[in-house]
Design a protein around this nucleic acid. Sequence first.
RNA 1: GCGGGCGUGGCGGAAUUGGUAAACGCGCCAGAUUUAGGAUCUGGUGCCUCUCGGCUUGGGGGUUCGAGUCCCUCCGCCCGCACCA
Length: 833
Amino acid sequence: MGIGKYQPEKIENKWQDIWQKSGCFEVEADKSKDKYYVLEMFPYPSGKIHMGHVRNYSIGDVVARFKAMQGYNVLHPMGWDAFGLPAENAAIKNNSHPAAWTYQNISEMREQLKRLGYSYDWRREMASCRPEYYKWEQLFFLKFLEKGLIYRKNSPVNWCPDCHTVLANEQVEDGLCWRCDSEVQQKDMEQWFLRITDYADELLDDLDSLDKGWPERVLTMQRNWIGKSYGSELTFRFKGMDETVTVFTTRPDTLFGATFMSLAAEHPLVEKLIENYEKADEVRAFCDKVRNMDRIKRGADDLEKEGVFTGAYVVNPVTGKDMPVYVANFVLMAYGTGAVMAVPAHDQRDFEFATKYDLPMQVVINPPDLHKSGDILNLENMDAAYTDPGFLVNSGQFDGTDNESAKKAVVEHLDKEGLGKMAVNYRLRDWNVSRQRFWGAPIPVMYCDACGVVPVPEDELPVQLPENAQVRADGRSPLPMMDEFVNCTCPKCGGAARRETDTLDTFFESSWYFLRYCDPRNADAPWDRESLDYWMQVDQYIGGIEHAILHLLYARFFTKLLRDCGYVTAAEPFANLLTQGMVLKDGAKMSKSKGNVVAPSEMIKKYGADATRLFILFAAPPAKELEWSDRGIEGAYRFINRLWRLVEDLEEVLTPAKPVSYSDTKSEAAKNLRRKEHDTIRRATRDIENDFQFNTVIAAIMELVNELYGCKEELKATEPEALSSAVATVLTLLAPIAPHICEELWEVQGHKERMVDQPWPTHDDSALVRDEVTVVVQVCGKVRGKITVPNNAPQEDVEKAAMEQENVTKHIEGKTVRKVIVIPNKLVNIVAN
RNA sequence: GCGGGCGUGGCGGAAUUGGUAAACGCGCCAGAUUUAGGAUCUGGUGCCUCUCGGCUUGGGGGUUCGAGUCCCUCCGCCCGCACCA
């Protein structure tokens, strides 16, 4: 009676049940064991898992199972990033509550994940939209507020006049609202901001500590995003006015060449400057035009530089000359001070602007070669700004100085009058966490006419989203219209107050979920400190590159905030980061519009979870893009069947042997098999530990299976123990990748214990040694033959054997042997001419 | 423009410290089995000549006995950021 045909669904369901009932993936903090925390980015519950999820979670599952077999206490949790706009849109469409849609999707996606056999501790599952979860981030909000890490500020936002709501930049398409196609406007609104800029330096500096564990390009992207630049702040006095303006510049050395000034359209001084100017309306019109331009158009590469004179002048502090003040469309309020000293001879933008409006230029940096020959750069010959290093000219006492040292000298000179100082500027802006949406965590503050902004008392948390809310067809949040939500009592004065109706950005939830997993059911605190300190940091974090900046920067920031509020010890949340490549089909990202989507559920149905996992791990190394191939998954399915048939064929002779348990080999075939077995363990372990190269791990296991096919008929009768040992090794090494079939065949082999409880095998170097080795013989670097010699044979013997090769003598005939290089057990290179 | 990555058969991709380039898989070819097909098993499969041999890791150059790997240079592709003062 054989084991029958391979039926993936049957055995996969069987083992998933057994694992679940035994609770074998449920873990607790235990200081007597080494821990390993592996985490995959939690999904938004859109309803269906896609191949990107399968890849992400399959990689994570192999890591988790591998580390568990190595004896670590492995934390491997899963949950749901459950707040967000799609739920609101679905609710509008179906006239239901976003929660209903969300929970329905979660339960569907949970089933799909379970069907893939992942080793999650499902007891720790969380959904970020539950009050038991967001209660704690409301508490964090209050702590941040207390420490001044969060503040309110007026800020320009994208505003859709028809939807009466703020839109994220991503929701503005070509300047139009994605939902109603209205033209999006810029509007100033009061918003809550988190002081991420206070942490800019630490966020930047700590990236250095991640350089071994994180991909270089993620570090680079974060460094660029933070955008630290060294320069100086210079202050200019207005002519005929008791007013100053400060600019940020990285080129104080060019100050003598500053001939005009450019302000951003949003600059607060503009209105004051044009107060008595006869063309004030013209300036206002220009500012409005620039302000109302959407960000994409305004930031476009080919946007024509435009500006308007304000009628005002500042005085160049070193030349004493008047500099006309312009409003210019390319100056950004969000960078530096929103004001720029224009040096047209040495800045390309200023050069173009000055050319267009016929403004004066002055060369102050002389190229080194001209400097040498005693010439000076001539404006007449310039069709672009000169931006390279050089020596100062037309710069008074600084003439002849190289421009790098001049930077410091010029600033020091101005500093005497209090008009200049060295300064650091960041591109990073504070994080606007306010959203005018319903489906998010309520911001726990209230507004009292008498007391102003009042935090919700901690014992009143959580501020819950009303379950009876009715989403509005126009997309506006129903919260401001719900009296029972809005009306409240001020805890300070007892008077009437109104609740904040904005909710938190959903990146808030994903910034600390990895901490909550350490103690997810704690009702008294965000977590028990001992459990947290045991599990943190996350040893291996895995997710898509699309989160390189936003989520990963916010999560790092949050960890530091919580450390400073006394909740966390670690300064960095993720010790190692793996960004998996995209899953492509026909060379393009899978998308409904392209019609190239492959549904995981169909693959699982047709080939099983094991074959699906095997293919997605075999087709490419994790960090690279993966081209989905229907032929490829058939190949994976074929291999699984091949393994099944191997064990089926050997069933009669197999004993419940452990990996590498057979050492007293007699025949050549058994010796070869044993060597291959040990070598496979060596390669598989090395490749997993070295950047999780599962594709080559699988290739190595396939080779061992091929070896088994080659020797099984011979060894069945003579040394079946060799086969039992090798089969056990195959199953053990493959178990983290295709866990169900390995459990099943492990049982077929006669084992009573489960595969998930087996230790990862270790190889024996002495088992890799061959009695005889093949040595390649080269003449002048070209392969001319191969010889078989005893292992570690004396060099002279090897050299002699090589020289005697017929094909070798032929090629050195008539030549003089100059040199013979012998690499032991590898090759002989005979150099002759 | 700045930063990062990549370039190997018909395809996905392998190659410890420089040491037989193309492992493993897909595809293709042949044989076995089969009434036939499918499935399976075995063997073959970089290119040119097909005998010796020659050529081959985007192009060119260098270091070396020996280079996919190290250095220089050029070309091409992908990704991120970008009027950042």
